[in-house]
Amino acid sequence: MENSILIENNPSMSRRHLLNFFTGTAIVVTVGGALYPVVKFLIPPSDVEKDGSILAKDIHGNLIPIAQILAEPPETRALVAGLAGAFNC
């Protein structure tokens, strides 16, 4: 009689473990998906120089040479990207 009770409890325990696994997985995926943008925001860009400056890049991500930056007259807005051409300055 005792063996039949143990056998009956075993399948329900495996179902309980399976449901706990699915619940835990769903929680981890949800929390991970919510925390990913936060962590991505808090990690600084990889192209930061030692002095804390960020290199100038064009719209395609290519570095802008210093000669091109220095060739522009002071007070010009030629190198300002803004919102990718949303404003015609």
Rank of each mutant, 00 (worst) to 15 (best):
G24Y: 07
G24S: 03
T25A: 03
T25S: 03
A26H: 11
A26Y: 10
A26T: 13
A26V: 07
I27L: 02
I27D: 14
V28E: 15
V28G: 15
V29N: 13
V29W: 04
V31I: 04
V31R: 11
G32Q: 02
G33W: 00
A34G: 04
L35S: 00
L35E: 04
Y36L: 12
Y36C: 13
Y36N: 08
P37K: 07
P37G: 09
V39N: 02
V39D: 09
F41P: 15
F41Q: 11
F41K: 02
I43Q: 06
I43T: 06
I43Y: 07
I43C: 13
P44G: 07
P44T: 04
P45H: 11
S46Q: 10
S46E: 01
D47V: 03
D47I: 01
D47S: 02
V48Q: 12
V48E: 09
K50C: 11
D51V: 02
D51S: 10
I54C: 08
I54A: 12
L55E: 15
L55C: 11
L55P: 02
L55T: 10
A56H: 04
K57H: 06
K57T: 00
K57Y: 01
K57A: 10
K57E: 08
K57S: 03
D58R: 07
D58Q: 00
I59W: 01
I59Q: 12
I59F: 02
H60D: 00
G61W: 06
G61V: 00
N62V: 04
L63P: 01
I64V: 06
I64R: 00
I66D: 14
I66F: 05
Q68S: 03
I69F: 05
I69S: 14
I69Y: 06
L70P: 09
A71S: 11
A71L: 04
A71C: 08
A71P: 13
A71D: 15
E72G: 05
E72N: 14
E72M: 07
E72S: 08
P73E: 02
P73V: 11
P73T: 12
P74N: 05
E75V: 00
T76D: 14
T76G: 01
R77E: 00
R77N: 13
A78S: 15
A78D: 15
A78M: 09
L79C: 07
L79I: 03
V80L: 06
V80I: 11
V80F: 14
V80E: 15
V80G: 15
A81P: 15
A81G: 15
G82M: 08
G82W: 00
G82I: 01
G82S: 01
A84D: 12
F87H: 10
N88C: 09
C89E: 09
C89H: 06
